[in-house]
């Protein structure tokens, strides 16, 4: 390869990256700019706000119970994450480290539950919650996580497998039972994995639209932000400035968390795919 060709290649790759990068950022910029336009301007295809309507953010909170949506999202995502940890960390540990009967069929069931589209089993589960008179509340969204979350179990198990067996053996020799090994050895060593599983669980619940649509759409008091945002359009359809302000608000927490936990995130997502 000639130097000239090499230089050209590097230049071309740079150009492609920069072009793609701009295309990735453009939607974000447009949405952010629209969020500070007044409602008349948003219907003109304008690109630059004139005037800058910062009050859209204030009006977002006035026009809709955005604060309550945030709280519900926090309850949904936080509750799910907490429950998931309680149920899934021990189970993942057993599947990774303890010899038990039926380990293979149980693990197989976890994998299938993880991969199965949730809609396949939606009807009977809905019927179940309806019989318990819990439709309309956040319980059908949160409570199941107290009984294991297949993807998290899988992810955590993958992480536990990476911890050398010698640590477990040493802890056993030191007289620890299974719970002791889990809490004193595995959990401290698997902190990044647990963090990744927690963040995934949190984001999945935060972003969930289908669950709230099915279970809490009838009760605006229990709308999380993702559902509220989709319905906000319904009642304030052409106030695009305010809609975009709510869109920005819904995204902000996710982005902030990402910047604080970027490493954990990328490691976690890599683990699901690569070491699978």
């Amino acid at each position: 390869m000639t130097v000239r060709k090499r230089v050209l290649t590097v230049f071309a790759e740079h150009a492609i990256l920069i072009a793609l990068g701009i295309m990735f950022l453009v939607p974000v910029v447009f949405v952010a700019l629209t969020s500070v336009m007044n409602s008349g301007q948003t219907l003109t295809g304008a690109l630059w706000p004139k005037p800058w309507e910062w009050s859209n953010y204030q009006r977002a909170f006035e026009k809709a119970p955005v604060a309550s949506w945030f709280l519900n999202s926090l309850l949904y995502a936080g509750g799910s994450t907490l429950f998931m940890l309680v149920s899934s960390v021990p189970m993942a540990y057993v599947l990774a480290r303890v010899r038990i009967r039926f380990a293979n069929p149980i693990f197989f069931a976890v994998i299938v539950a993880m991969l199965l589209p949730p809609q396949v089993i939606q009807v009977p589960i809905y019927v179940l919650w309806a019989h318990l008179h819990l439709v309309g509340t956040l319980w059908p969204l949160v409570l199941p996580h107290l009984f294991g979350h297949a993807f998290s179990i899988f992810l955590l198990r993958q992480f536990f497998l990476t911890i050398p067996q010698e640590y477990t053996d040493a802890a056993r020799i030191d007289g620890n039972g299974e719970w002791g090994i889990l809490t004193r050895v595995m959990v401290p060593m698997a902190k990044p994995g647990i963090a990744a599983a927690s963040i995934f669980m949190f984001f999945q619940s935060w972003n969930d639209y289908y669950g709230p649509l099915l279970y809490t759409s009838e009760n605006p008091d229990n709308w999380p932000i993702a559902y509220g945002l989709a319905s906000f359009h319904g009642t304030h359809s052409t106030d695009w400035g305010v809609i975009m302000a709510v869109t920005v608000l819904a995204t902000l927490p996710v982005v902030v968390v990402f910047f604080f936990a970027q490493r954990v995130f990328v490691e976690g997502i890599t683990l699901t795919g690569v070491k699978g």
Binding site: Y126, V127, W129, A130, H131, H133, V135, G136, S217, E218, N219, P220, T235
Partner: peptide, 18 residues
């Protein structure tokens, strides 16, 4: 009063024992 409920939603709530 539960306002702003689409008819399909009301049907769903009634049917599921709401």
């Amino acid at each position: 009063v539960h306002s702003g409920q689409q008819d399909t939603k009301i049907t769903q709530v009634v049917s599921s024992g709401g």
